Simulated scan of single mutants.
Amino acid sequence: MASIIAKDLVAASATPLILSILKNGDSYGYEIIQQVKEHSNGLLEWADGMLYPILHRMEKNDFIESYWGKADTGRKRKYYTLQDEGRKELLKMQEQWHQLYTLLMSFKGE
């Protein structure tokens, strides 16, 4: 059975994960949730109530932009696209996570 990731780590990783997903192309809420679940092999299972406040904050910070589009079914769907500020933020966050990972691994042998 897979271990459960602490809520504070889930919260801290949400923005860089969303930005990483959107770096690969525009997406919508449910698809973002599914990609996180798939790429984490089920370790992270986000709920709508957790995702949308983060997306709204990211949009307010000009990291992403939203627009309405139509699904294959013809239903309206809100899509999110990565902006230049979001790309810059993603690079900064990736470097910070790498630094933290390197620090954590430096204590592994002690």
Rank of each mutant, 00 (worst) to 15 (best):
M1N: 10
A2P: 14
I4W: 14
I5N: 05
A6W: 12
A6V: 11
A6H: 13
D8P: 00
V10W: 00
V10M: 05
A11W: 09
A11Y: 09
S13V: 07
A14T: 08
T15G: 02
T15W: 03
T15N: 04
P16I: 08
L17W: 02
I18F: 12
S20D: 10
L22Q: 01
K23E: 15
K23H: 14
N24L: 12
N24I: 03
G25T: 06
G25L: 05
G25W: 04
G25N: 04
D26Q: 12
D26F: 06
D26Y: 06
Y28V: 01
Y30L: 13
E31C: 04
E31T: 04
I32V: 07
I33K: 09
Q34Y: 06
Q34T: 08
Q35E: 12
Q35S: 07
V36M: 10
V36N: 01
E38T: 13
E38Y: 05
H39C: 11
S40C: 06
S40R: 05
N41C: 08
G42N: 08
G42L: 00
G42W: 03
L43Y: 12
L43T: 11
L44T: 07
L44N: 02
W46C: 07
D48A: 08
G49N: 06
G49C: 00
G49L: 03
G49P: 05
M50E: 05
M50I: 08
M50L: 09
L51M: 06
P53Q: 04
P53D: 08
I54S: 02
I54F: 00
L55M: 09
L55A: 04
L55D: 00
R57Y: 07
M58Y: 03
M58W: 02
M58L: 12
N61V: 02
N61A: 13
D62V: 11
D62R: 14
F63T: 00
E65D: 09
S66V: 13
Y67P: 07
W68E: 15
K70V: 02
A71H: 13
A71D: 14
G74Q: 07
K76H: 09
R77S: 06
K78I: 02
K78G: 03
K78E: 05
Y79R: 12
Y79T: 09
Y80H: 03
T81E: 13
Q83P: 00
E85F: 08
R87N: 10
E89G: 00
L90I: 05
K92W: 06
K92N: 10
Q94V: 15
Q94I: 13
E95Y: 04
Q99D: 10
L100F: 10
Y101A: 14
T102M: 09
L103P: 00
L104I: 01
M105G: 03
M105L: 14
K108H: 08
E110Q: 10
